[in-house]
């Protein structure tokens, strides 16, 4: 990914599926970079047949990145989404902050679709890289 390519990222529909459902480990999170910006700008959490998808932006700082390492978006119990910038905890299904610096705020959802065993982003997807 060159710098020139990354800066071309613009809001558009994502034709390619993110992955297959079976690629996602139950109870775990995984980051994605649908526009090829060079960083994961969204992540999903699989719980059984359900997949929850959120933008990789903690609401308490502008575009704050949340994981502590590639694909690590959950607290150690696996029961909450955690922002490893300052420890905020979020409900996995509703995205609501339950403890920490963004209490009363919520994560930004990404609309996804599960069809034919594939996970797809629905509608237009905006870049997430801070520029």
């Amino acid at each position: 990914m060159s710098v020139a390519q990354r800066h071309k990222a613009e809001t558009r529909e994502i034709a390619e599926p993110l992955c297959r459902l079976e690629d996602l480990v139950d109870g775990r999170s995984r980051g994605f970079d649908p526009l090829g910006e060079g960083r994961d700008t969204m992540f999903v959490v699989r719980r059984g047949a359900a997949v929850h998808a959120w933008r990789n932006h903690c609401p308490h700082y502008d575009r704050a990145r949340m994981a502590w390492k590639k694909d690590e978006f959950l607290d150690p119990s696996g029961e909450r989404i955690m922002c490893f910038a300052h420890g905020a905890l979020f409900d996995i299904a509703s995205g609501e902050c339950v403890l920490g610096p963004c209490l009363g705020q919520s994560l930004t959802p990404v609309e996804i679709e599960l069809r034919d065993g594939l996970v797809r982003v629905r509608g237009k997807y905006a870049p997430g890289f801070r520029r």
Binding site: W68, M82, F84, A85, G87
Partner: peptide, 8 residues
């Protein structure tokens, strides 16, 4: 950097 200590 983010960290598992819940702080930068």
């Amino acid at each position: 950097f983010n960290s598992p200590l819940g702080t930068h």
